[in-house]
Amino acid sequence: MNRVIVVTSGKGGVGKTTCTANLGMALARLGRQVALVDADFGLRNLDLLLGLENRVVYTAIEVLAGECRLEQALVRDKRHSQLVLLPAAQNRNKDAVTPEQMKKLVEDLKPKFDYILIDSPAGIEMGFQNAIAAASEAVVVTTPEISAVRDADRVVGLLEAQRVEKMHLVINRLRPAMVQANDMMSVQDVQEILSIPLLGVIPDDERVIVSTNRGEPLVLAEERSQAGTAFENIARRMEGEKVEFIDLNVSQDNFLTRLRRLFLG
């Protein structure tokens, strides 16, 4: 059974591309055939996060224009051959592609892959419409901030209207200490508004930024990190495994706060 999942958020910069890269890599490591589709035309950077920038020759645009075959545009990951990337064009604007064309591309990819993850651009305009056109599932990414949650809520409504009804929530950049000090929305606060099932919680972690700069997804790092484990857990949950949510507080907790600890991960 192959699944087409759009990773989207509404608000920009909340971690869609980071999630797409890490989940794609984690799923590939679980033995799945994974295609990542960069639908952020004009502002592509999924190739950067994967460290594949220098291997991009063709993009989706050339495939659509009939200038190359789909297979030629796919960039196979150097570390995991189970993972491929379909890059977006850097120099064209977002209106270069239509939702029908995206559907066609994804249809053509479908037979060969277990997972097709589509990295959506920010916003709810044409680029977003393109990204969701072919998807039957969505991972909605938000940070625990009012403005991000508000935009995520709008996106959930739009996805419902487009009948992308299978939706899951990823809360990124959570800072447990701030939640405990009541300075940040808690997982429950976010869930209460969005009311879609929680797929995972990723802590705010500077190693995410380091891995971004290195072009090496965190799930590949030898030294384990909570954020990396959180991504792996999400991938396993996507595979249908029941994985406990990690308690992000455990390391810095005293007894009292642990009594009312929040189960996250």
């Binding site: 508000r150 935009d151 809520d153 709008r154 959930v156 409504g157 739009l158 419902e160 009311s195």
Partner: peptide, 8 residues
């Protein structure tokens, strides 16, 4: 019977 979401 629905959640009326932001923007609606």
């Amino acid at each position: 019977q629905t959640t009326v979401r932001s923007g609606v």
